[in-house]
Amino acid sequence: MKRSNVTHEIADPSEVNRFAAIAERWWDPSGETSELHHINPARLSYIHDWCCAHFSRDPNIRNPFTGLTVLDVGCGGGLLCEPLTRLGASVIGIDPTPETIHVARAHAAQMELEIDYRIATPNELVSSNNHYNIVLNLEVIEHVSDPFSHTQACAQLLAPGGIMVLSTLNRNFRSFITAIVAAEYILGWLPVGTHRWHRFVKPSELAQHVRDAGLRLANVSGLTLTDGEWEVTTDIGVNYLAIAIKD
């Protein structure tokens, strides 16, 4: 479920190295990130539906996000940047891991998509004083050493009236069993050591970070595996998504 280890200020070097190792194989749907590819349509549909509703765009057209800017924090190989570019948005993807950004750039070139990929953390962008209509903050918060200041920086990058999409893993006994023991050890979906359970975030903690950053929490939804396919549901026991709005 891990996208990248974007860290704010205090980048944890061991986290950075673990992800550089799998960056090369990022785009192989049968490779080590297969679970990420598998979960992607469900995450995208959540982003798509919420952003279309928020900006009053027709969800059935090809380019509903024309004219909107997107910042994808912890963009990894570009699994979200590419679809959002096709949907019409102008997209900036940031990730502190150079190897990952190289993979993302190479892939975008092969797909003939124009995406601005940068090796950066949210905090480094704050000084540039640019603001984005949509900030994506998926599977990042559980990997940063200071979730509070990370969320703060992301919120500063959000334009007034903008929308932030977050996702992370809940910290409870079920998520420990499912995400760590099952996904990493038993099923082998993710490389061992991908998750650090003590860093998982309870929905109440996420809500607090979001509010402290001056945003309004508009939705929390679960992401669950039903009959072999990931779906957006109300079960926030393990994987969950959230919407925060800058009013």
């Binding site: 749907p29 349509p41 995208l44 798509h48 059935n60 090809r62 590419e82 679809p83 570019t85 949907l87």
Partner: peptide, 13 residues
């Protein structure tokens, strides 16, 4: 369904 999410519709997945 995939095109509307911006996904590449020619992949094996």
């Amino acid at each position: 369904n995939n095109v509307r999410l911006g996904l590449d519709h020619g992949t094996m997945e």
